[in-house]
Simulated scan of single mutants.
Amino acid sequence: MSMTTPTTEAGTAAFPTLTVPIAEAIAAFSAVLPHSTKDPITPILGTVLVSGRSIIATDRYTVGRYTFETSEATEDFLVPREAAEWVSKIVTRGLRRATRAGSTSEGYGIELAVVGGAVNVSIVFGEGDDYAVERMQQFDPAPSTADRFPPVARLIPEDPASRPEASFVALSPENLEKVTGWAKKYAKNEAVHFTLAAAENGSDKPAPVYFKIGGLDGLIQPHLLPRG
């Protein structure tokens, strides 16, 4: 989706920006939000990292990453939880009118931009001379910066299925629901693919379980059973 983004004289984006078709934005933020935390002790884990073509969230026990089909951020930035929740629950008057008319959300987009520290989330429509902002909401700055976000994306291998399979793993229902709950709503006709990998280097510590469904992939740390 091509949208008009403010640029400098050199042609680069004037501030960190990501623009995504609205249906994909709603699905994406709904996918990763369950993997973030509301714990005030670790506020950065309550944010969503925007990085390249992906958004990422983690609560230490699971990691959720959604990769967009074509949209890409101009640079990495953090989206506070309140802004991410707002995106995930958007239903605009324009979209309702389009639905009643039998049309689609084609042409609508979500634009996230960090301006003066604050995070602006706009519902936009069209491009070029027809570009218009239908609604804009401003949110307080994220509690930290993108470079401080844990580098959890590197924990997800490019091809989990290529790793040796393990024979047993225990997962908590709460962590599974973060994946299956989203899939039931946004990916009804797709299967969730889980890969159980063996521990590396002979370690007796259980390895993560990797998952993928549509644009969402990530990992779930195993549930440690009590000893004895």
Rank of each mutant, 00 (worst) to 15 (best):
T4N: 14
T7A: 08
T12R: 15
A14C: 12
T17S: 15
L18A: 04
P21K: 04
E24L: 13
A28S: 12
F29S: 02
L33N: 02
P34C: 09
T37A: 13
P43N: 12
I44H: 06
I44T: 10
G46P: 09
G46M: 05
T47W: 00
V48E: 01
V48A: 05
L49S: 05
L49N: 06
L49I: 06
V50T: 02
S54C: 11
I55K: 03
I55G: 04
I55F: 05
T58E: 08
G64R: 00
F68V: 07
E69M: 11
T70M: 08
L78G: 02
V79M: 06
A84Q: 07
A84S: 14
E85L: 14
G94E: 13
T99A: 15
R100W: 06
R100Q: 12
G107K: 11
I110C: 05
I110G: 02
G116D: 12
G116H: 11
V119D: 02
N120Q: 14
V121R: 01
V124Y: 00
V124S: 00
E127R: 09
Y131E: 13
V133D: 04
V133A: 10
F139I: 07
A142F: 07
A142D: 02
D147S: 11
D147V: 09
F149R: 03
I156C: 04
D159N: 13
D159A: 13
P160L: 08
P160S: 10
S162E: 11
E165N: 10
A166C: 12
A166H: 06
S167P: 00
A170V: 15
S172K: 04
P173K: 09
N175F: 12
E177G: 10
E177T: 11
K178H: 11
V179G: 01
G181N: 10
K184L: 12
K185F: 05
A187I: 04
A191H: 09
V192N: 06
V192G: 06
F194S: 08
F194K: 09
L196G: 01
P208K: 01
P208V: 00
V209R: 00
I213W: 05
G215K: 11
G218D: 02
Q221F: 05
H223D: 04
L224N: 09
